[in-house]
Design a protein around this nucleic acid. Structure first.
Lengths: 112, 112
DNA sequence: CTCGTACTACGGTGGCTATCGTACTAACCG
DNA sequence: CGGTTAGTACGATAGCCACCGTAGTACGAG
């Protein structure tokens, strides 16, 4: 056992495993729409993204955890640990490859 | 009371009343995705569209009624009576005005 | 008027889900 | 080590929702 910091991996669907129904269901919730709207204003690079607590939500932290997980399991966002925080970012490239134009259309629509 | 054939009106949300969450929720179901996929192959003009029974679905007729109603109340489809049948057609123009590109992106995605 | 077709309304059932609070773990800072 | 911060796991609850069958309505054909 190396003494390096343990990297807690989180399960993500591969690009091919992303299902349309799951994505639409994940987006059909006002709290989760808000999450992706906020994430949209952050970069997507390896080191970019927002922590869970940076996204202000009108629900408890445990409920917020639930919503982030739904988005991750649907393949909409990527989550990785960074110290005590968890970094969230949109999976733009994967979503664009799988369902071209969908994410942008939803983001534009959510912006009113 | 005129003796003309009674026109049973059905409630539809106006263009401005169409809500994004409702549309996404309506589309996040495999049966309803199939419905709009089939309707997409029919014309949208006043006289076009498909009857409920023309859309083959793997559910009972009462459940099918439920799905058509969800789509109508979300503003995704328009329904009007024509004799004993009900004609269904997509509300393309309204959806495009409200959420540009969304319907097309979903239809493309659903087509695999 | 009777019959068949097309769809609906209603009631019930099981499963999912958004929400919460509480208790917990993981990492970093002194 | 102890404390703080960030997020999670768990259990509970209430509401919604997809589904069905049965009974009923509306319309057109004969």
């Amino acid at each position: 056992m190396p003494t390096t910091t343990a990297v807690r991996e989180l399960p993500h669907p591969s690009r091919e495993e992303i299902r349309l129904e799951a994505v639409l269901h994940a987006l059909a919730d006002p709290v989760r729409l808000r999450i992706i709207t906020v994430l949209n204003t952050h970069g997507e690079g390896e080191g970019n993204g927002a922590t869970c607590s940076q996204v202000e939500l009108p629900v408890s932290t445990s409920t917020a955890t639930h919503h982030f997980r739904v988005l991750r399991e649907a393949g909409v966002i990527n989550q990785c640990y960074r110290g005590t925080s968890k970094i969230n970012c949109l999976r733009r490239a994967d979503l664009e490859a799988r369902f071209p134009g969908l994410l942008d259309a939803v983001l534009r629509a959510a912006a009113n």
